[in-house]
Amino acid sequence: MDKRTLKHALLAGSGGFLAILLLASLSQFGMAALIMAPFGASCVLLFALPDAPLSQPRNVIGGHLISASLGFAFYTLAPNTPFFAALAVGVAIAAMVLSKTTHPPAGANPLLFFLTAKPLSAWFLLTPVASGAILLVLIATLYHRITGKAYPAMSKI
């Protein structure tokens, strides 16, 4: 393993650690939830592959909002069955592709509504989905600027 690979791995891991620690801490001590499991996967893209089109703010924020909104709509309007959970994921993927906001971790968002023991409300779309995704992008922007990396990729905004 060369020094550049090790440095990249350590910076990526540190960025993900700090982002999740900050969101979890703010959630614990604040009034609103700012974290959900798919954000861990978002951190892989934001900190390990910040130049990738799937890591750009439009994709992170838009992908999470679109897929979570569709998950909520399906959960609210359809029976809680494997068929409708799968359909919600499929429609969310198609919607992200059509809107050019594809963000793979957001593909899990519809499942959050179908798999939680306690029903999620429409507020879930605001917190943690929107507020958490926006904060993740802001944290990644600040982190990359501090560590000498340009993010977001200006040609991909």
Rank of each mutant, 00 (worst) to 15 (best):
L135D: 04
A95Q: 08
G40M: 02
S131P: 10
S14V: 06
K3A: 13
L46T: 02
I139K: 00
A78I: 06
L115H: 05
N80L: 09
A9P: 00
G30S: 09
S55G: 06
R4I: 10
G90R: 12
G62W: 11
L77F: 12
T76P: 04
G107T: 09
P119V: 07
L135M: 12
S69K: 05
T116F: 11
A108M: 07
F39L: 04
S99P: 04
S27P: 08
A106P: 03
L77Y: 10
V44S: 01
T102S: 14
S25Y: 13
T116E: 07
L138K: 06
L49P: 00
S55M: 14
F74C: 06
A108N: 03
I66T: 02
L22H: 02
P50F: 14
I61M: 02
T116W: 07
A88N: 02
G148D: 02
Y143E: 08
S155A: 11
G16P: 09
I146P: 14
L54E: 01
A9Q: 07
A122S: 12
Q56S: 06
F29E: 11
N109A: 10
P53A: 14
F47G: 01
N59R: 05
A95I: 12
K118W: 02
T102D: 01
A88K: 08
Y143L: 09
P82K: 12
G148S: 09
A73P: 06
P105M: 11
L126R: 00
T5I: 13
A32M: 14
V91D: 03
P57I: 09
T141S: 15
M36W: 05
H8T: 03
V137R: 05
